[in-house]
């Protein structure tokens, strides 16, 4: 009678999809069982081969042009939408408007319960800076993987000296730095890469009294992390998965 790990469960373990209790069970089994641990190593080898060697097909320039063209066309041909009153003749404009107003109140309550209004604005600013840096071909002002090049570059450009960390060996090579504008002030943006994912880290001197712990604030498929430490604000934005982005945050706070 064998007591090997069920195949599917080993894959879920590899994918980080098991709860803590089951993960620990498998971990301790792998330490004892040669067959299963060999199988697990094979799966890990397959994953790292796929991630490091498989081609990633980026959207060609022509596709981006076609996309722009489509939007231009849509902007020209779309007519203003019919008033909602027409399709809901039994509802007066007043009812519709007050309904919309009520929804707005509910929505704003829901989001502000766990974020301060200032933070709401900042999350938005951080995210749009992140997205813009990916879209507009303006990712970096200084391109270098060397922190001794990136850190001095900010001298004279901003009135503080950002902490720049070398996390290359941990799998987060530095791509470069950039000057950005958030919260009505110039800030330092540091760009890291993790496989094909780009990570923006924004930092500037904080005006908050006490230190804030790390918090995750997500929006539209992106993760945003925020904390303050030693008088500085730190904001991290990326589409990288939570697990690995948390690792970067942890390394940065060390």
């Amino acid at each position: 009678m064998n007591d090997h790990v069920e195949q599917k469960r080993l894959h879920s373990y590899l994918d980080g999809e098991l709860d803590l209790v089951r993960s620990l069970e498998i971990e301790s089994h792998l330490q004892k069982c040669q067959d299963c641990s060999q199988e697990y190593r094979n799966l890990q080898a397959l994953r790292s081969a796929i991630r490091s060697k498989l081609p990633y097909y980026s959207a060609p320039a022509r596709l981006r042009e076609r996309f722009d063209l489509m939007l231009e066309k849509a902007a020209k041909t779309e007519k203003p939408r019919a008033r909602p009153v027409k399709s809901w003749p039994w509802l007066g404009v007043g009812v519709g408007a007050s309904l919309a107003f009520a929804l707005m109140i509910i929505w704003s309550l829901g989001t502000t319960l766990w974020r301060t209004p200032v933070e709401n604005v900042l999350v938005g600013e951080v995210l749009s800076s992140h997205v813009r840096s990916l879209m507009a071909n303006h990712l970096t002002d200084v391109v270098s993987s060397d922190l001794h090049t990136v850190k001095p570059w900010f001298n004279g450009r901003i009135d503080f000296s950002p902490t720049v960390k070398d996390l290359d060996t941990e799998g987060f090579p530095l791509v470069g730095g950039r000057l950005d504008y958030i919260n009505n002030r110039p800030v330092a943006a540091l760009v890291f890469r993790h496989r094909q994912h780009l990570i923006n880290l924004f930092t500037w001197p904080t005006d908050r009294g006490k230190e804030e712990k790390v918090r995750r604030l997500s929006q539209e498929g992106y993760s945003v992390y925020h904390w303050t430490k030693a008088g500085m604000e730190y904001w991290v934005a990326s589409d990288l998965n939570t697990e690995e982005l948390q690792e970067l945050v942890r390394l940065y706070r060390e």
Binding site: S58, L63, R64, M135, Q196
Partner: peptide
């Protein structure tokens, strides 16, 4: 736009 690469 940010997901056009993933889509392609």
């Amino acid at each position: 736009l940010p997901h056009l690469d993933a889509a392609y």
